[in-house]
Design a protein around this nucleic acid. Structure first.
Lengths: 209, 209
DNA sequence: CATACATTGTTAAATAATTAACAAAGATTT
DNA sequence: AAATCTTTGTTAATTATTTAACAATGTATG
């Protein structure tokens, strides 16, 4: 698996979609699929599918297509999903609690190992069998559980501080749900997910039609 | 407000970020900001800020910058956020419940009016004062509450059916949290948010470093 | 086994988005 | 009031991404 070239960010998101389609196809007994099939199921063009895959190698057979299971395995490997990942969620508010229980993470190999909060009323409790720990024990627990991924679900005002703590503890990738821009050192992967902004895309387009 | 040209999708997301910075700046008594200030606070380039704004008009004063409050108001108007929007959430599972309670929506003018589910145990109950109704009453309630935005938080297998129902009831914009591609007629605005895929971006980049 | 057909992988063309450069316009200083 | 400084808005250049086209390659058919 080689990542020599710069791959468009969007490609990664599409690979994830492809993989979901492929595992479904495989379950249904569809052993072979074409770029056309994948494209139709995921809402992209066949050329896009082939281009995306071409970044990583040759996975198909000309005149035939792709073996569903095989391509699925390749993509999962590309995405780094051929193993389990431990994840920490920081913030046991509504969003943090929901994400802790969200089944979709488990389905893709993510294991929410622990939750952190600074509310004494929450510390020591559990959310669907996941322990809530104090901020103070973050570094310790991150090392214990070998956690490389962190989810920030705290208010905007605390997000940067939490990010710093996570990075210091050894976390390598962070998703920030707080609606604020935070910065991390260069070798840390950071993504921002702004739920309200998603609705704002809709209102923007609906506004003037 | 004119949307003659095709605006990059990313621009809309950035406008949302800018607006969040601007209201904060205004609260702190910073009446004037430059594209440089906005850029630094939101993690983009000053040229990007000016380009984004230029799609919609001239909001600044050369040699001076932008009036924080004024630009904030302009952007909110552009995004269609100068009024309240009623939103329906479909699915009262973990994710649906969390989104119903998520404070971030309210802060930006979104009002979760009702929740729909088909579980008899949930119908009739409330989640932080928001009623849970049956799928059957969806069309009726969407009209009663004048709901134009819908959030799909049901399992992938039910997502398309829910989308169809929402559209038929008069909803114009949809966010789909189910990890599946759904289709809607052309004049409906649809966005897909795949939470697991967000983590997969991280693992992709962490995999081979 | 030659011909027709299907579908990939790849190269080229077209489109889109970002960044850089700078003239225009207003504020400040001498 | 001329000269200098600042920062916008806009145009041009650059970079990135998507789409289209097609040669290469394998399968199926007569």
């Amino acid at each position: 698996m080689f990542k020599k070239f710069k791959i468009p960010d969007a490609t990664i998101g599409r690979l994830s979609m492809y993989s979901r389609y492929l595992i479904e196809a495989d379950k249904k007994g569809i052993t072979t699929v074409s770029s056309q099939h994948i494209a139709k199921a995921t809402g992209v063009t066949p050329a896009q599918v082939r281009k995306d895959l071409a970044y990583f190698g040759e996975f198909g057979t000309r005149g035939v297509g792709y073996n569903s299971r095989e391509l699925y395995n390749y993509i999962m490997k590309i995405l780094g999903l051929n193993k389990q990942w431990s994840v920490a969620i920081v913030g046991a508010g509504n969003l943090g609690r929901a994400l802790s229980q969200y089944k979709g993470f488990n389905q893709r190999g993510f294991n929410i190992s622990c939750i952190f909060d600074n509310d004494p009323k929450k510390i020591g409790k559990k959310i669907s069998n996941i322990n809530i720990y104090s901020f103070d024990s973050l570094a310790e627990k991150v090392k214990d559980f070998n956690i490389k991924l962190g989810i920030i679900a705290v208010p905007a005002s605390a997000a940067q501080e939490v990010a710093d703590k996570l990075v210091k503890a050894g976390v390598r990738g962070i998703i920030n749900f707080a609606p604020v821009n935070i910065t991390v050192e260069e070798n840390i992967i950071l993504r921002r997910v702004d739920l309200a902004a998603q609705l704002e895309y809709l209102t923007y387009y609906l506004e003037e039609i």
